Amino acid sequence: MGKDKNILLVGVGGQGTILASKILSTAALAQGYEVKMSEIHGMAQRGGSVVTQVRVGTEIYSPVIDQGEADMIIAFEQLEAYRWAHHLKKDGVLVVNSQKIIPLPVLIGAAVYPGNIIARLRESAGRVVEADGLRLAAEAGHAKATNVVLMGICARFLDFPEETWQYALKARIPEKLLQINRKAFALGYDYAAAV
């Protein structure tokens, strides 16, 4: 993996952002790295923002990722990618699930959902990897596995061996859902290789 990695996971309540962070943290710990993780829930149960910061390395003292310091942002929804893109390093990777979840202020007409988010991100961020995580998760067998599809994409940018990721999935996913999630992870991993 080389130097320390700062990975920001951003989404909306109910998308599995925290579970994805725990899978990532478990994989990093299994590789012998120090891991610090923090969670921020903004009315998560009502569709609010959920942000998780995961720092991985040899000597990690704080879980906080400052603006412009994220090596990677995994965004489970377009607007969340847009809100947090300023945390990405100039040469960082922004993985964006193409899904849009319309927030309450937009639904009631008090705000407008920004247009052309992906195009705007491509102009301002480092490398942008857009994926239809929801479609890939449905292909794996369940739409709720979108978070694991995104972890499969993330895995392409971290040099942890396949068995480490499989260990992390088994440690964090209930047995009855493990096969679907293994397939979701593989689909994300293969997708990232093709883009």
Rank of each mutant, 00 (worst) to 15 (best):
G133F: 03
G42Y: 03
E39Q: 11
I73P: 04
C154Q: 09
T58C: 01
L9C: 03
R83Q: 07
R122L: 09
I73S: 00
Y33D: 11
L134Y: 13
L8C: 02
S124E: 14
V35T: 10
E59V: 15
G133P: 12
I118W: 07
L121M: 01
Y189H: 03
G13E: 01
L134R: 15
K89S: 03
Q78C: 05
Y191A: 03
E175G: 15
D91T: 13
G14N: 01
D4T: 10
A186R: 13
G57R: 15
I65T: 07
K176D: 15
A125K: 01
W84L: 11
S98A: 04
G14C: 06
A28V: 04
R122G: 00
G47Y: 11
Q45A: 06
M151N: 07
I60E: 09
V64C: 02
I74V: 14
K90T: 13
A194Y: 14
G152H: 01
G57Q: 11
G133I: 11
A119V: 01
L134E: 11
G115A: 02
G141E: 04
T146I: 05
F160V: 07
A137P: 04
G92C: 09
G57N: 06
F185T: 03
F157S: 03
V112D: 05
I23G: 00
V95S: 00
A75D: 02
Q99W: 09
I173R: 01
M37Q: 08
P103N: 04
A193G: 13
S21V: 10
Y189Q: 06
V112W: 15
G32Y: 09
A192Y: 14
L169W: 02
N147H: 10
R120S: 13
L88G: 03
